[in-house]
Amino acid sequence: MTTSAEPYDEVVQRDFGGLGRTVVHEGELLRHPTYTRFLHWTVAIFFFAALLSGLAIYSPWTFRWLAPLFGGGPMTRFLHPWFGVGFAVAWFFQFLNWRGVMTWTDADSKWLREIGRYARNEDKVEPEYVGFYNGGQKLQFWEIVFGGLVLLITGLLMWFPEITGRIAVAISYVLHDISALIMLGGIFVHIYLSTIGQPGTFRAMTRGAVTRAWAWTNHPAWYREVTGRDPREDCEEARRRLANRERAVKDFELGHPEPTRERNPRE
């Protein structure tokens, strides 16, 4: 079991490290082992298959053109519940995998109270109490756990109307929609924050490793946990070194009025 003394990624590395290989270079930290990444993308494939086939049925007046992607209306109708089952199974394993690290803590409540600062990007570096996952990520996790449960139950009720009856179907129809719409709204935020919204994040789910700078910026408490170092100090140290380097480059340029070539300004 996950304990506070044993960092989460060490636990998963021990349990699932044998599956696949994650290369962690110098200056990087292991974020997600292969098992987690495999589950994430399996869930993602089923999620989008279920979302697109579901939208074709949800609002044919807007998304009727999605049905041919799945082989036409009857096939879309046939496949959609199976996509849902696939999502539920893959997500169940991801739930088992993540339920420990997603446990809600006081730090998350604190983060949630300060969500405005997070949304406005007021802190260049996240508060020191933000661990492996922040409150927003945990909120989304639990939303998908309970929302997924609603989708699964109502979906099954609508799948077998002969057994459940027309009123159960009619109620499920509304609840299924609401739960799906919440997830649809959430997926935009999820994709945005894991790609262009927070550069350096996407590689966590592809290669499995993140830079130390990403870690002390976005998850300082986790950085402290896995490296045993102070995230703020390391950030300041990196800032000093960068400033020194920039100053050295500037001095060099003053001595050499010709523009220097073949130099990446970001290094």
Binding site: A119, R120, N121, K124, V125, L181, I182, L184, G185, G186, I187, F188, V189, I191, Y192, I196, G197, Q198, P199, G200, T211, A213, W214, W216, T217, N218, C235, A238, R239, L242, E246, P265, R266, E267
Partner: peptide, 24 residues
Amino acid sequence: ALLGLLAVVFHYIFTGPKRPQPEA
């Protein structure tokens, strides 16, 4: 639900990304 898409687009435009620190 689609407003979520609009929200992240405007977030990118008005607030911008959160980059790892320090930035050059």
